[in-house]
Simulated assay, not measured.
Amino acid sequence: MKYQSRKKAIVLLEDGTIFHGKAVGDQDGKAFGEVCFNTGMTGYQEIFTDPSYFGQMMVTTNPHIGNYGANEDEKEAEKAQISGLICKNFSYFESRPASDETLKEFLDRSNLFAISDVDTRALVTYIRENGAMNAVIATDFEDLDALKKELSEVPDMNGLELASKVSTKEPYFFGSETATYRVAVLDVGVKKNILRNLAKRDVYCKVFPYNTPFSEMKKWNPDGYLISNGPGDPKPLKEAIQTAKDIIEANEPLFGICLGHQIIALANGISTYKMHHGHRGINHPVMNLITGKGEITSQNHGFTVSEDECAAHPDVEITHTHLNDNTLAGFKMKNKNCFSVQYHPEASPGPNDSHYLFDEFIQNMTKENA
């Protein structure tokens, strides 16, 4: 399909910097969010549907987006979670037999506004140098002052609670009811592939809303607990932090992923902070300090846990570190059945280096039941 009337569009950053492009398709549009970038060469559908990206404007560094279409089985949530898409070259045609639809059709169904023909190399370089910030993409930019005023009213990600926007409203089940293990999942933005990885390890999951107390979760009599990934700042999630404290106090098997990792840190009195521009991609190198082995990992986070406070904590041992910037990538509690990582072991960006973490979680539940 050829779009003859593609409208000019801009990316306006909160500091006033402008990048030019064109709307994907022939419609007008406008979208706001914190601008961030992902360096993955593939996996755009998983990125766009990852609840951890809720409220964020995604810049893809791969110059070609859309060429393999979209597949119903590859989504991480029922709908797109990003607030908008910025790319270099957008493909309106898909060339993969397994695709169910074009990416354009997927975006239209998701009511997601996208722009292309942007100099994404320049934009990503700017973010790396100046940090993540709010942005707007729009086709109507004649009144820049009015657009800047709208943008100034978008809340900053620092201090922003978003888990309630993506969490399930009611508990639900995933997997086989006859499975050997039962895991209670605190959903602060859970990806479907986390549940798939548990289910294929003979786990039956019950997924609970983000603010569910431990007392309610334990009524189901699970063998273990998982606190999921998710969007936003972990500090406002007081109820989830208390739930983590209570699970730890009861010494139940607990596994935290990404935002869940940050929540567990806060439950131990270890602080978190907003990063300059975050880690988002599928080739981030992590060192496992226990085994001495490196892992190629998938990551998506704009906040992280204080490594200094973690190292000084008497009850915590650092288990993983990010090799690019030495930020904390994982820890375990010395006297409790609890561990967590800052990356995504359920993702398979080619290597399956981190799948063992699910197996360790199963082993922890097995020890508990021995």
Rank of each mutant, 00 (worst) to 15 (best):
E161P: 00
F32M: 11
S215P: 04
Y126T: 08
D246P: 04
K274N: 03
S52M: 08
I47L: 11
F173A: 09
K8R: 13
Q299V: 15
I86R: 01
G350Q: 12
A9I: 01
C338S: 15
V35T: 11
F361K: 09
E317A: 08
I362W: 04
L103M: 14
M287K: 15
T139F: 00
A311T: 04
R201E: 05
R6F: 01
K2E: 07
N221Y: 12
N38H: 10
H277E: 14
C258V: 10
K192W: 11
F37H: 05
L162P: 08
I263W: 03
K219P: 07
K367A: 14
G230N: 07
N352Y: 09
V154I: 15
L254N: 12
A184D: 12
G292T: 07
N288L: 00
I270P: 02
K149A: 13
Y3P: 01
H277G: 06
L198Q: 11
A370S: 14
F141N: 05
D15V: 12
F361A: 13
F174T: 06
A132K: 10
I47F: 05
M365I: 07
A329Y: 08
F214D: 13
T366L: 04
S99Y: 10
I194S: 10
N111L: 06
K30C: 10
V286N: 08
D100V: 12
V305S: 01
Y204V: 04
D187S: 06
S83Y: 06
E76Y: 02
K191D: 15
Y204A: 11
E368V: 04
N229Q: 09
N283Q: 12
H276L: 09
R128Q: 15
I47C: 13
E94Y: 07
G69W: 06
V305D: 09
K235Y: 01
V11L: 02
